[in-house]
Design a protein around this nucleic acid. Structure first.
Length: 1068
RNA sequence: GGGCCUGUAGCUCAGUUGGUUAGAGCGUCCGCCUGAUAAGCGGGAGGUCGCAGGUUCAAAUCCUGCCAGGCCCA
């Protein structure tokens, strides 16, 4: 890598900056430089492109944490891939059509319901929709920009754009030509008040399910008796929708269920055995005469309750259905295939056509002559009265249940067969299941779990909506059934050719104005008219991969060579939404999965795991979080959490988790940079990028460079497998080694003065170069995860005009791997941790030097071979000498540890005994690596000898470090010399404190006066040079000083006073 | 009713070819260190691994059932 010429030193860095303010400065820098655009243009396209699809949000409100989280992931992966050298285009998309837009328009226009829309006219209504869907776009752009997400808003796509819709029409026509579109008559939730079917979206709206009291009737259906049966054999069926009884066409039983047959007054009554107990009163005095299996009932014929459909082909039989339960009712379900999904499915399987004698307003039609024109719920009573009179009503009660309501009109929905257009998903289901195996899902279980299962059970998809604001169904049909004809259009050109006019707008009502004479009608009277429905908006969002580029009318080659996408991310519920519809369309149109890698993240909830709610304000305002802690903190908080693996993440009301990120992640990174900058400025130097300084470099430098290489390897692996939270964890681990070991142990080299001694100065320069190199690599490695902080550091470090996001991902080959050194150094860190623990336990403060530390263990001598390690331990633990001992007998002894995993299978039941014997020390070393224990000879990896400290070592404090296989022994015997040295260090500490309290500059020279007890004075006498050198004291006097700044402290149990007086340096 | 996920320290979570003494961060308490200083280091306390069975020499881990929570489908 080319290094900039060192013409100036580094900027002054605020040690505890206002990160949000820094962030907005960086955002402004990006804007002024066009950095985002540069980052795309700097990479080659074509084969090298990394394709990312931005699932279009529906902007009917401000973005919340879920959107922000998705946005962060949508930013991190492309930034990473860009640094890896790929070209990553990012276009923002807007989902524009559908019911939420219509609702908003109604609100704005002050109207309500279908009739008022038609009264006002579709044209002004759709205009209002068009305006309303763009209402929040500028707010969205502000949020997305503030979260440092790079995405192209200028070149965005909208699902309502004409080219987008044309591609959607192409998709529809292509599926039509493949025979995958059909018109069907299916039972769906239906609002008779709004006269429309109700989509999934609407039935799931809050409060859609509400308590309702309905009459529940147990009705006796009279079977046609067989030989040996009485004249009246009645099967009892239960329903909470008596109004569907006139349309009854069959009964349904569970084939495996048991049905009890009771006799009462010569009449037989059939009911599920498990439920007979609920009819004690009605069955009083009845005797059970038989038990039938459901399968015995299947196929039997019964007399219709009502005459309206008595000649219906195939009807009035008992069928078997797997959905029949014995939870409530009678175990016999009455089937009205026009008014129930299960009913329709079962009847269809038996070749019974449905009947639907209820019109669009929920009124009975002429077919039900007796109740014609009556609203179905109103008809419940008269129907029940009639059944009672005819003796068919076995029991009548009222039933309170949760029932879906039309959220607009508050009226109960009905299930009703309506005409709708379907995409025949069942025909491509197996292919989808197969293609799904090619997709890499995060978390992995989604593939064969919720998504895979959903695909296996996929049903045909109703894609038409009798609404106003959406892509038109491109179907024109003859208005005279005598001359049937259907035309389907897949492009604007085809429309213009057939209708002879320009088609500037594909929306209603303009599209509805396209009519022409039916070419198949010789009389010339019938007209081709568009069916008035619009497409389900999910069909449109699922078309996003090709529709955003106006395929196949434009970008044909690009799309065909860049599909499927490399990566998408949305929240987990999109397995039922966009992931699914994209899958259906990709399979149906192209026989490919729509994407290769997909993250489905979880949901952000509040402290009590409740949904975030604007009304309840149970979450911190994202804008406040941006202003208080910054976007990078929020980014890290969200993306380092298990929410990326589909779990929920609860965010506390005060945003403590986000604040914590600043302290635990961002500050450490920043501290490293500000430390570097502070000393480099003091030394007035610039460092060089030296990723591989060679074997003669100081050991700490080689260690941290090898360590940062390991970091890059780890983060690369995690990012390549889309495990962002693991990448974050890698960074955390590295920061500990960097800040709390490397920098802390290297401080001396930074503050040492330039001596003129070549070796010492080289060490100092090596520290700077290493620090610079690590920060250089680190800022690039965290650039996707902390893009704003990384940018600020990189620009300060390298060049204020250069963006870290335009650099290449760190090259691991450039950095020297040194596994042995990393291992040994990590052992040394363990030793220091252990030794400090031992000191703590022994009550020996660190400032008190101790004589020696011994490290004993089989691997210990290797430590001695690496130069410089012992000095690190001496400094860190404050001991005079460090030694190693390969032979551990002096300090430790071995305990036998049975490797149960290896020996268990061979020893079987004796494993426990053998382990017990080993723990009691009942084992014998047979040599050659063989050991006898508990009557068995173990060898090889079946046993392991573990080092523990020996007891009763005079004057030593010992500790085993199992992870490293060593024992350490600290010499805890102090001497008067050591005590005096410790006191001298204590004094230095107090003097430094006094200097700081006096407000002196670190370079100011002082005169010292110390008021001390006699042993304190002895310490000063012994270590006068050391104290003066450390504290820049020109002189030390005993006693209370006159003038200057006095500072009181406690030393050796006495109150002492330290007086510092600044000494003017006379320039010679 | 069915499917998927989750249940481990006060909190957030690691911990899969089953292996002896279950880990981390945060919080808390104690101690230390400090020319990065509104930082840093060490230690202590804190756990019936949701519950109950089973398999096994051995279960947080595998199996079964149950309980609780979340999501989805009926």
């Amino acid at each position: 890598m080319a290094t900039k010429v060192n013409t100036s030193t580094y900027p002054q860095v605020d040690t505890s900056p206002n990160f949000p303010a820094l962030e907005t400065e960086t955002l402004a820098f990006w804007k002024s430089q066009g950095t985002f655009k540069q980052s795309i243009l700097a990479r080659e396209g074509g084969e090298n492109e990394f394709v990312f699809y931005d699932g279009p949000p529906f902007a009917n409100g401000l973005p919340h944490y879920g959107h922000l989280l998705t946005g962060y992931v949508k930013d991190i992966v492309p930034r990473y891939q860009t640094m890896r050298g790929r070209r990553v285009e990012r276009r923002f998309g807007w989902d524009c059509h559908g019911l939420p837009a219509e609702l908003e328009a109604e609100k704005v226009l002050g109207i309500s319901g279908r009739n008022q829309i038609l009264e006002m006219g579709i044209k002004p209504f759709n205009e209002a929709c068009r305006t309303s869907v763009m209402k929040y776009t500028s707010e969205w752009e502000q949020y997305v920009t503030r979260q440092a997400r790079w995405v192209d808003f200028k070149n965005d796509y909208k699902t309502m754009d004409r080219p987008y819709t044309e591609s959607v029409l192409w998709a529809f026509k292509t599926l039509w030509d493949k025979g995958l579109i059909y018109e069907g008559f299916k039972v769906m939730p239906y609002s008779w008040a709004m006269e429309t079917t109700v989509s999934n979206f609407e039935t799931r709206m809050d409060n859609a399910y509400r308590e309702r009291q309905d009459p529940a009737a147990t009705v006796a259906f009279g079977l046609v008796p067989k030989e040996g049966e009485p004249e009246h054999v009645d099967v009892l069926a239960w329903t909470t929708t008596p109004w569907t009884l006139p349309s009854n066409l069959a009964l349904c039983v569970g084939a495996d269920l048991d049905y009890a047959v009771f006799e009462k007054n010569g009449r037989w009554l059939v009911i599920a055995a498990a439920l007979a107990g609920k009819f004690e009163k009605e069955l009083d005095g009845a005797d059970q005469v038989a038990t039938w299996q459901g399968s015995d009932l299947v196929g039997r014929v019964y007399t219709p309750l009502f005459p309206y459909f008595k000649d219906h082909p195939g009807a009035f039989r008992i069928l078997a259905g797997d959905f029949v339960s014995t939870e409530d009712g009678t175990g016999v379900v009455h089937l009205a295939p026009g008014f129930g999904e299960d009913d329709q499915r079962v009847c269809e399987g038996e070749g019974i056509d449905l009947v639907c004698p209820v019109d669009s307003a929920g009124l009975f039609t002429f077919e039900i002559a007796d109740y014609k024109g009556m609203q179905v719920f109103e008809a419940n009573r008269p129907i029940l009265r009639r059944l009672r009179e005819e003796g068919r009503l076995f029991r009548e009660e009222s039933y309170v249940h949760n029932y879906p309501h039309c959220w607009r009109t508050d009226t109960p929905l009905i299930y009703r067969a309506v005409s709708s257009w379907f995409l025949k998903v069942t025909a491509i289901r197996d292919e989808m299941v197969r293609l799904n195996q090619e997709i890499h899902w995060i978390p992995g279980h989604v593939r064969d779990g919720s998504f895979g299962k959903w695909l296996e059970g996929a049903r045909d998809w109703p894609i038409s909506r009798s609404r106003f604001w959406g892509a038109p169904m491109p179907i024109w049909r003859s208005d005279d059934p005598a001359y049937p004809r259907i035309d389907v259009y897949g492009s604007i050109q085809e429309l213009e050719a057939d209708f002879g006019v320009k088609v500037p707008d594909l929306h209603r009502p303009y599209i509805d104005e396209l009519t022409r004479p039916n070419p198949d009608d010789p009389t010339g009277k019938s007209v081709m008219r568009r069916i008035p429905d619009v497409l389900d908006c999910w069909f449109e969002s699922g078309s996003m991969p090709f529709a955003q580029v106006h395929y196949p009318f434009e970008n044909k080659d690009w799309f065909e060579s860049h599909f499927p996408a490399d990566f998408v991310v949305e929240y987990v519920a999109q397995t039922r939404g966009w992931f699914y519809t994209a899958m259906v369309l990709a399979t149906g149109l192209f026989g490919k999965p729509p994407f290769k890698n997909v993250i489905c993240h979880g949901v952000v909830v509040d402290e009590d795991n409740q949904k975030l709610s604007k009304r309840l304000k149970n979450y911190p305002d994202p804008t406040d979080m941006f202003n208080e802690h910054g976007s990078d903190a929020m980014r890290w908080y969200l993306c380092s959490s298990p929410i990326l693996r589909g779990q929920d993440l609860s965010v506390d009301l005060k945003g403590k988790g986000i604040a914590e990120v600043v302290r635990l992640v961002i500050m450490p990174v920043w501290n490293a940079w500000s430390f570097f900058s502070m000393y480099a400025r003091a030394d007035n130097l610039r460092a060089d990028y030296r990723p591989n300084p060679g074997p003669d470099a100081p050991v700490l430098d080689r260690y941290i460079l090898a360590k940062v290489r390991d970091l890059v390897v780890g983060v690369t692996k995690a990012m390549d497998s889309y495990e962002l939270n693991i990448a974050c964890a890698n960074v955390r681990t590295f920061l500990d080694a960097f800040n709390n070991w490397y920098i802390r142990r290297s401080r001396g080299r930074f503050w040492s003065a330039v001596t003129g001694d070549a070796a010492l100065d080289a060490e100092k320069h090596s520290a700077y170069d290493t620090m610079y190199t690590v920060l250089h690599v680190l800022s690039r490695t965290v650039a996707p995860l902390l893009p704003l902080v990384a940018e600020e550091i990189y620009r300060g470090l390298v060049d204020p005009d250069e963006s870290v996001h335009l650099t290449d991902w760190p090259d691991v080959n450039e950095l020297q791997a040194d596994d042995a050194l990393v291992r040994e150094m990590d052992l040394v860190r363990d030793v220091c941790t252990g030794a400090l623990g031992v000191r703590n336990e022994a009550g020996l403060r660190v400032r008190l030097p101790l004589k020696s530390l011994t490290i004993a263990g089989p691997g210990a001598p290797e430590l001695a071979e690496i130069e410089g390690l012992f000095e690190l331990v001496q400094d860190e633990v404050n001991v005079k000498s460090v030694s190693v001992e390969g032979n551990v007998e002096s300090l430790g002894k071995f305990e036998l540890f049975v490797n149960a995993r290896a020996a268990g299978p061979r020893l079987g039941k004796s494993t426990k005994d053998v382990i017990g014997a080993s723990k009691r020390g009942e084992w014998k070393d047979l040599g050659d690596g063989k050991v006898e224990v508990g009557g068995f000879v173990l060898e090889g990896d079946e046993v392991e000898l573990r080092l523990v400290p020996r007891d009763g070592l005079e004057g030593k404090a010992t500790l085993a470090i199992p992870s490293s296989g060593v024992v350490i022994a600290l010499d805890v015997v102090t001497t008067p010399e050591l005590e005096r040295e410790g006191v001298a260090r204590d004094l230095v500490r107090h003097i430094q404190e006094a200097r700081k309290a006096a407000g002196l500059e670190v370079s100011d020279r002082i005169a010292l006066a110390l008021d001390l007890p006699s042993d304190g004075q002895a310490a000063v006498d012994d270590h006068r040079d050391y104290i003066q050198g450390q504290t820049l004291a020109d002189s030390i006097a005993f006693g209370q000083g006159a003038g200057g700044y006095s500072h009181e402290a406690s030393l050796l149990g006495h109150l002492i006073s330290v007086t510092v007086t600044r000494v003017e340096v006379v320039n010679s």
